[in-house]
Nucleic acid binder design. Structure first.
Length: 724
RNA sequence: GGGCGAUUAGCUCAGUUGGUAGAGCAACCCGUUUACACCGGGAAGGUCGGGGGUUCAAGUCCCUCAUCGCCCACCA
C-alpha cells in the first residue's frame, strides 16, 4: 500500500497534479482516445459546447455549477464509451467588455473612449481580454473540467469572425437582415442601441401631469414625460369613446412651449378610455407604442430629443437642455399658462440599460435588423420565428429539442409568441464589424471588403448574441466543411443558466436552424442561480460572493462540485454555504479512509472472482442495483439524485454496514468466507470509485492511481463505466 | 397586465411513471472496536400551505383559495 494512504487525504497536494497528468495523457481529446484505444473508432459521438464565459474577468459560482454539471455529463459519457468532445471557449461579450474597460480607463487615466480613438480603445480591450481569457482558462482547470483544450475557440478570433461575416451575408442575401429606420432603445450613457433583452426595468415614483396643449384645444391628455410633448403629432382616442367621437379627424395648429405643433385627432384601439382622460398624446419619435400608432395613421414623426438626451427644438430656454431640465421648463410653462389641470404621483417602470445604468431613450435610428417573420423558402417556407417554435418540444409543438426541466418550454413559447424583429447593430467599437461597405450611394455586403478604392465600412458592430448564436457550429469550424462539424454537430446538451434562455438559447436555435437546417442541440439543461446560505443573490455590493477558487483551495474542487450538485434539481435556485462544502470535504476523506482499510486487507488476493458467500452475493446484487439506478439518473439528467445515491451508498452502506460486518469475517477461521469478503470489499471500492469519478474526479483518480490495481486501466478517467 | 414557479422535519432542500414520508445540517443520548473524531451507534422530530375533487390508493393528478418569489410587457 502506498504510504500516502497513511495520512488524511490532502486535496492541495493532489488536484493540480492530477489535472496536469490528465492533460498530458491527451484523453480530453476524443481523437487521442481513439488513437490510444480507449474509445472505439466507430463510437457514437457525444458533444457539449461550453457556454463561453464572458471575457470580462473571473468566474463565479454560477460558472462553477455550469462546469460541474457539464463535466459530470462528459466524464460519464466518456467512461461509457462515447466519442466525447467538450469544447471550451470564451465570449468577447462586446458591450459588457467595452464598458468594463472604458470604466477602468476612465478611473485610472481620466480618459474617455473618444480621447483614445477607436483603434487604441480596441487595442486596450484586446489586451484586457487576453488577460481575462488566461485567468478563465486556469480557473476552468482548477474545477477539474475535462474539456478539449486543443479545440479551444473564442467568439472573436479569426475563424469565428469569418463565420459571422458569412452568415451575415447569407441572411442579407435572403432578405432576413435589413436596414431600417425604426424606433430603437438608445442608451445615452453608452451611446449605443441595445436590444430589448438588455433593458432592465426599474420601478420609480414619478409625476403624471394632466393638461391641454393650449386653451382652445378641446381634449386634455396625461403624460409622465411633458418634455416629449413638443414632438406630438396626434391625440389618439378610443374609437368607441363617446366623449371624443366628434373630434376624430380634426386637426389643430398650436404653439406649445414655444414650439409650433400640428395635432390630428385619431381613433385608435391603443387608447384606453379608462386611463387618465382616455386621450393619449402621440409622440411618434420617442415612444415605441406611439411609433406604431403613427404607422397606422400615417403621421409625421419629428425627432425632438437627440442621442445625448438633449432637446433639439424650442427657444433658448429649451433647446440643448437635458430632458430632465426640459421637463421642469415645460411644466412651469404649463402652470404659467394655466393649462396644467392635475399633477399626481404614479408608479412607473422606467427602462435602463443593463450594462451602463443609463435611462433608455427611445429614438428613431437607422439600424440593422433581423426579420423574424419573413418566410424562408429553403426552410419549408417558414419564418425564423416558426423555425424557433418548431424546434422545441412542448404543449404547442413537439419539436426535437427537449428542455430540462420541462416547464421552461412554456416560458420559451411565451417569449417566441411576443418576439419582434431583432436589432443587431450596436454603436460600440469592440465587436464584429457589420460586413457592409459604402461608396457614395453604393452599398456592398460581403464576407471580404470589396475591390476598389473609396469604400468605407459601416462603423457599427454586431450584438454579441449574434456571434454567440452560431457558437455550436462556428466553434467546429463552419463555414468550412470540417470533419469536426460532420462528426460532432448537432451537439447533445446545451447546459446553461435559465436566465439566458432568451438571450442566447433561442438565438442559437434561430441561427442554427437557418444556417444548417438542423437543431444546435437535442437537450437544453437549465440550471438555477447559486445563492448564498441565506438565499440572497451573490453580488459585489453585498459582499456575499463565494469565489470558486477559494473553495477549491480551502476544501478542494471535488468538495465544491459535490456541494453544488447534491440537492440541486435542474432549473431551481440553490443555496451554498461553507458548511455544506465542508461536509463533502469530509466525504472525500471518508472514501480515502475506506481505501486504506480495503487495501490493507486485500493485498495479494487473486483478481478472479472466488465462490461468493450468500451475503456477498447479496451485496453484489445491491451494488448492481445502485449502478443501474445511477446510470438511469444520469441518462435522465437527475444528477442531484445520482450524486446523493452514490454518497449514501459509499458512506452508509459500504462504510457503515459492509466494512463493519467484514471486520470479524476477516479475522475468522473460514478461509473461503474471508476470501469472498476480501474480493467483494475490493469490488465495492472499485465500483464506488468509478461511479463517483464524474462527481469527484480528483480524489477518485488519485486513489485509483496510487492503489495500482493490476489488470485495470491506469487512468480512471477512461475506465469503463459500471453498468450493473 | 401576461407568463412561470414555490409552499414537505428547527434550518436548507430531495422525492423519477400515484403504491407504507427522505437526506444533509442543527439539536439530544451513548460510544474510542482492523480505516476514518474530517468517526461510529441510538433515539427524537412532519395531519407534505388551507379547502374541495378523481382513485382501491394522492406530497405526487384536477379545481379553488392564501402567501412568497421569478420572468416578460410600449398604459400614456
Amino acid at each position: 500500500m502506498d504510504d500516502k494512504f497513511l495520512e488524511p487525504y490532502d486535496h492541495k497536494a493532489t488536484e493540480a497534479r492530477i489535472y496536469k497528468e490528465w492533460e498530458e495523457s491527451g484523453y480530453f481529446n476524443p481523437d487521442i482516445c481513439i488513437e490510444k484505444g480507449v474509445t472505439a473508432p466507430d463510437a457514437e459521438p457525444y458533444t457539449i459546447m461550453m457556454p463561453p464565459p464572458n471575457a470580462t474577468g473571473v468566474l463565479h459560482m454560477g460558472h462553477a455549477l455550469m462546469l460541474t454539471i457539464e463535466d459530470i455529463l462528459v466524464r460519464y459519457h466518456r467512461m461509457n464509451g462515447r466519442r466525447t468532445l467538450w469544447l471550451p471557449g470564451t465570449d468577447h461579450a462586446a458591450i459588457a467588455t467595452q464598458s468594463k474597460v472604458e470604466k477602468e480607463i476612465s478611473k485610472k487615466e481620466g480618459k474617455s473612449r473618444h480621447d483614445l480613438g477607436r483603434e487604441e480603445l480596441v487595442r486596450r480591450i484586446e489586451e484586457f481580454v487576453e488577460d481575462s481569457r488566461s485567468t478563465i482558462r486556469s480557473q476552468i482547470r482548477v474545477m477539474g473540467a475535462s474539456c478539449d483544450w486543443s479545440r479551444e475557440a473564442f467568439t472573436f478570433d479569426e475563424p469565428r469572425n469569418r463565420a459571422v461575416r458569412t452568415i451575415f451575408k447569407m441572411m442579407y442575401d435572403d432578405g432576413l437582415i435589413y436596414q431600417g429606420n425604426r424606433i430603437v432603445n438608445w442608451d445615452p450613457k453608452g451611446q449605443t442601441t441595445i436590444s430589448d433583452d438588455e433593458i432592465v426595468h426599474e420601478e420609480r415614483v414619478t409625476k403624471l401631469y394632466t393638461f391641454k396643449y393650449s386653451p382652445d384645444f378641446p381634449i386634455s391628455i396625461s403624460t409622465t414625460r411633458p418634455e416629449t410633448k413638443v414632438g406630438d403629432t396626434a391625440v389618439a382616442v378610443h374609437p368607441d369613446d363617446p366623449r371624443y367621437k366628434e373630434y376624430v379627424g380634426k386637426e389643430y395648429d398650436m404653439v406649445f412651449a414655444g414650439v409650433p405643433i400640428h395635432i390630428k385627432i385619431v381613433a385608435d384601439e391603443e387608447a384606453d378610455p379608462a386611463f387618465g382622460t382616455g386621450a393619449l398624446g402621440v409622440t411618434p419619435a420617442h415612444s415605441q407604442a406611439d411609433w406604431a400608432i403613427a404607422d397606422r395613421h400615417n403621421l409625421p414623426r419629428p425627432q425632438v430629443i437627440n442621442e445625448f438626451a438633449k432637446m433639439t427644438v424650442g427657444g433658448p430656454e429649451l433647446l440643448g437642455k437635458k430632458t430632465t431640465e426640459a421637463r421642469e421648463v415645460i411644466v412651469s410653462w404649463l402652470r404659467e399658462q394655466n393649462l396644467l389641470e392635475k399633477e399626481e404621483d404614479t408608479k412607473q417602470n422606467i427602462s435602463t440599460a443593463e450594462r451602463t445604468g443609463g435611462v433608455v431613450e427611445p429614438l428613431p435610428k437607422l439600424q440593422w435588423f433581423i426579420d423574424v417573420n419573413k418566410k424562408i423558402s429553403a426552410r419549408g417556407n417558414r419564418s425564423l420565428k416558426e423555425l424557433m417554435r418548431d424546434a422545441v418540444a412542448g404543449e404547442e409543438k413537439d419539436g426535437p429539442i427537449r428542455i430540462v426541466p420541462e416547464h421552461f418550454s412554456k416560458t420559451y413559447f411565451n417569449w417566441i409568441n411576443n418576439l419582434r424583429d431583432w436589432c443587431i447593430s450596436r454603436q460600440i467599437w469592440y465587436g464584429h464589424r457589420v460586413p457592409v461597405w459604402y461608396r457614395g450611394d453604393e452599398m456592398y455586403c460581403g464576407v471580404e471588403a470589396p475591390e476598389g478604392a473609396g469604400w468605407e465600412q459601416d462603423p457599427d458592430t454586431l450584438d454579441t448574441w449574434f456571434s454567440a448564436g452560431i457558437w455550436t457550429f462556428s466553434a467546429l469550424g463552419w463555414p468550412e466543411k470540417t470533419e469536426d462539424l460532420k462528426i460532432y454537430h448537432p451537439t447533445h446538451v446545451l447546459e446553461t443558466g435559465y436566465e439566458i434562455l432568451f438571450f442566447w438559447i433561442a438565438r442559437m436555435i434561430l441561427m442554427t436552424e437557418y444556417a444548417l437546417g438542423e437543431v444546435p442541440f437535442k437537450t437544453i439543461y437549465l440550471h438555477g442561480t447559486v445563492r448564498d446560505g441565506q438565499g440572497r443573490k451573490m453580488s459585489k455590493s453585498l459582499g456575499n460572493g463565494i469565489d470558486p477558487l477559494d473553495i477549491a483551495e480551502k476544501f478542494g474542487a471535488d468538495a465544491g462540485r459535490m456541494a453544488l450538485i447534491a440537492g440541486t434539481a435542474p432549473g431551481t435556485d440553490s443555496k451554498i454555504s461553507e458548511d455544506k462544502i465542508k461536509g463533502y470535504k469530509h466525504f472525500a476523506n471518508k472514501i480515502w479512509n475506506i481505501t486504506r482499510f480495503v487495501l490493507s486487507n486485500t493485498e495479494n488476493i487473486p483478481s478472479e472472482e472466488p465462490a461468493l458467500s450468500e451475503k456477498d452475493a447479496a451485496h453484489v446484487k445491491e451494488l448492481e442495483t445502485l449502478c443501474r439506478e445511477v446510470t438511469a439518473d444520469l441518462e435522465a439528467y437527475r444528477l442531484h439524485l445520482a450524486s446523493e445515491k452514490i454518497y449514501h451508498y459509499i458512506w452508509h452502506t459500504f462504510a457503515d454496514v459492509i466494512i463493519e460486518e467484514a471486520k470479524p469475517r476477516l479475522l475468522g477461521a473460514d478461509a473461503a468466507d474471508k476470501l469472498s469478503c476480501q474480493w467483494f470489499l475490493r469490488e465495492a471500492l472499485l465500483t464506488s470509485l468509478q461511479l463517483l469519478h464524474p462527481f469527484m474526479p480528483f480524489v477518485t483518480e488519485e486513489i485509483w492511481k496510487s492503489a495500482r490495481w493490476p489488470n485495470l486501466s491506469p487512468v480512471l478517467m477512461v475506465e469503463k463505466w459500471p453498468k450493473g
